[in-house]
Amino acid sequence: MVEQKESVLGKHALTHLRQLEAESIHIIREVAAEFEKPVMLYSIGKDSATLVRLAQKAFHPAPLPFPLMHVDTTWKFRDMYKFRDTFTKANNLNLIVHTNQEGKRDGVNPFDQGSEKFTTIMKTQALVQALTQYGFDAAFGGARRDEEKSRAKERIYSFRDKFQQWDPKNQRPELWSLYNGKINRGESIRVFPMSNWTELDIWQYIYLEDIPLVPLYYAAERPVVERNGSLIMVDDERMRLHPGEKPQLKSIRFRTLGDYPLSGAIESEAKTVPEIIKEMLLTRHSERQGRLIDHDQAASMERKKREGYF
C-alpha cells in the first residue's frame, strides 16, 4: 500500500505535476474509449518516454490497448535504436516501425536532399503513409503548447481530414475536459495529452518518476563537428565531413533528439536530471533551437502541420 506523499498543500490537494498527470491520463483513456484504432507515436525522445509512462499509468495493470509506432527515417542516433528496442521489449510494448520505403530505396538522406526535403519525405510523408496504411483514426503525440509560440492555440484533439490535412477552420472549441471525438469514416485526429506541460514539468516528472531516457540526453564526451554554429555529432560512418572538418571530442548533450545529422548538441557537463534542470533554468533558450529543421524556416510550423508533420 502506498501512501500519497504528504504534500505541503494539505491532505486533499494535488500538486501541479499530479494534476497534469491526471489530466493526461484522462485524455488518453478518453481516446482509447472513443476511437476504434488509436496509435501512439513514439519518437524515442523524452516527451515520448513521458507519454508512454502516462499511458502505462492510464491502463495499469492492463497492457496498452494500442500499439506504439516509430516513424523511422533510418537516420536516428545508434543509441536511440538501441534504447528503443530494449525499452519496448522490457515493457512488453507492441511497436510498429515504419519507414518510407520509396525514400529509402531512392537513398534520400539529409546531406543530398537538405534537411527540409529530407524531413518532408522521410518524416511527414512517412507518417501520413503509415497512418493511412494501418487505418489509425487517432494518433497520440507528445507535443506541448509551450514549445513554440504558434502552438499556443493548438487543441488537444487536432482534427485531420481524409487526406490527413489539418484544416485550421475546422478545429473545435475545447471546454472543460469534454473532448468531442466524433469523426466521419476516413477522418482522424492527432491527440496531444501533454499540451499543458512545459519543458520544466517534463524534466521534473522524469526526475520524480525515474523515467529511463536515451543516454544522449546526459552529457558525455562525444565526437562532434561544428557546422553553421551547431555541434553535430558524428554518430556513424554515413556522416559526410566537409573538407577540413575533423571530429573533436567534447562533453555534450542533446535537448531534443532526432536525426543525428540534423540535431544540434549543446556543450554541457550535466550528467543527471537535476543537473540538466539546473542548466535549463539558468540558460533560457527555447528547446527548438537545437532542431535544425526549424532553423530552415522559422515560420513554417503551420505549413508543416498542414502537411501532417504534427
Binding site: R145, D146, K149, S150, A152, K153, P168, K169, Q171, P173, S195, N196, T198, L200, A299, E302
Partner: peptide, 23 residues
C-alpha cells in the same frame, strides 16, 4: 511577446484561445 495571432488573422483563421505557461 504574446502576439502570435497576427499571421493567423491575416490568413483568416478563426482567432481563438491561446494558452501560456509560467511558474
Amino acid at each position: 511577446i504574446t502576439d502570435g495571432l497576427e499571421a493567423e488573422r491575416e490568413q483568416g483563421i478563426t482567432i481563438d484561445v491561446a494558452y501560456r505557461y509560467f511558474t
